[in-house]
Design a protein around this nucleic acid. Sequence first.
RNA 1: CGGGAUGUAGCGCAACUUGGUAGCGCACCUGUUUUGGGUACAGGGGGUUGCAGGUUCAAAUCCUGUCAUCCCGACCA
Length: 588
Amino acid sequence: MPIRLSTLFLRTLREDPADAEVDSHKLLVRAGYIRRSAPGIFSWLPLGLMVKNRIEQIVREEMAAAGSQEVHFPALLPKEPYEATGRWEEYGDNIFRLKDRKEADYLLAPTHEEVFSLLVKDLYTSYKDLPLSIYQIQIKYRDEARPRAGLLRGREFVMKDAYSFDIDDAGLERSYQAQRDAYERIFKRLGLDYVIVKADAGAMGGSKSEEFLCPAEIGEDTFVRSSSGFAANVEAVRFEPSPEVDASDVPAAEVHDSPKTPTIQTLVDFSNKEHPRDGGWSAADTLKNVVLALVSPEGKRSLVIVGVPGDREVDQKRAEAWFSPNDVEQASEEDFANHKGLVKGYIGPTKGSKQFLGEKAESKIPYFVDPRVAKGSAWITGANENEKHVWNLTFGRDFDADGVADIAEVRAGDPAPDGSGPLELARGIEIGHVFQLGRKYAEALDLKVLDENGKLVTVTMGSYGVGVTRLVAVVAEQSHDDKGLIWPESIAPAQLHIIAAGKEESVFETAEQLASEAEELGLTVILDDRKASPGVKFADAELLGMPWVIVCGRGLEQGEVEMWQRATGERFAVKLESALAELTARRK
RNA sequence: CGGGAUGUAGCGCAACUUGGUAGCGCACCUGUUUUGGGUACAGGGGGUUGCAGGUUCAAAUCCUGUCAUCCCGACCA
């Protein structure tokens, strides 16, 4: 039976909802696919549910092809497994917690690594049982501080999460690749434009991780890519230390008074005025020593100082990724008060002619430099005395560092780390994430099996996520125009939308007849059999976004119907008898 | 959590400055009309104006508090 608009539970809106900002949100609400229930929580109406179900079906097919088996865990779980891995604490306010009548703690699961691991531990004890890949399609709950953009960042959302269990690293690599390949097939079937970027693996203690991003202005992730294929999340870009430069011509370092120069700009201006040189000085000639406070997961606070070229800022997210699992904060007034040797605005690696910053130096504060600080490069930097700087301080000759910290902002035009050309920056929406977890969770939960020598070994895991409900929004975001949604055939609620445009009974009869013939050919059909004017039906057909539309109307007198292709906007008349044959031919 | 804005009918909005007991468009119901681009006309149903307190003869409107929502930022395995 076709989906009849005369009886479908649907109300389309003429105007955009006031609380929607992004196109996918506006259109999905206007077209009657979803309704907001609470911030970041949506109800699914018939058409929306059909799209979501079709995406889930594609995911199921590709998971099966990747050798993964479907299971299903509760969304409501006791806290114990999450305590074992420390995440009951780590997640903080971001999880929905609740108590049962006995005051026992429960949570609405934000992710399921723990219970998957425990179930495997429960059932399997031998290397012969591995590898194993299992997945579920389940509702996740995260109490986001700020849900936004409709389905793109919700507090309740559907995710496909898969987990692999292997005996060794080679097995993990194979499992990872199988999931990664499945993701490529899934996103291709959805007709999505996406990029695979190197992601930060440190946060979950893993070794390798990639994200699937859909390029979009409204995306929350920033990534970089080069024209010849390098792509990474900005958090995960790692630059090689610059090669050593010849410092034999660099004059000896000299300390000078530099009154009222606490900022890079004032210092550059002062240098050009009081110590001019050919070509002048710029911010890139100065070494800015940024004091950061690291806060460990246990809450311990310690300082580090990072020297970066004065023309670059520290990127907070990159710093967090670099110093993971610590949190990174700006040093506070109190931090400075606790380290009297630090002269704010005039901090530098040396004091007098001796190393000052560094774990083993006077300050005992670890000191790192940006990879752009090459051995042999000379800098203007602080002298650790009020209103004094030092010129021509040369790395490797006059000062040293405890290591490299690659936490400066990445800029468009920076060379790619693999030498593949200049980088461009773009924003993207994360639609999938594949992750080699390694043994972190297995260790914490004591997930071990006997190997062929009868020895207990810890299993190595991978975790793989696809945001199913987010995909509904991403497809809508990538595929729409000012009139409405444009679904790809693979997930459209129906492939064909038939409009009865006219008042004569014969028009409706023809449309009905056409609908049942189309269904016999295996097509899913929406039939607009409402008693409404043609204009209303045309506008709704475009808003709802089925890939093909057939209009039964005035052309019937000549035995013709009109066919529209939503995506291309192409429209043409065909003989009624050959309409479905034409459609079948065009769909190939 | 910081900054900004907004809460009036299912949806989009007006009335608030200057207090007088709520209105417009869409949607919905009835009738007539119209039938290839959101027809036209007439009639109709639907609101304790976010909540609580205060001022006043009288509060959507003024005052205090509170809650909620949206946007920017912080945060986001």
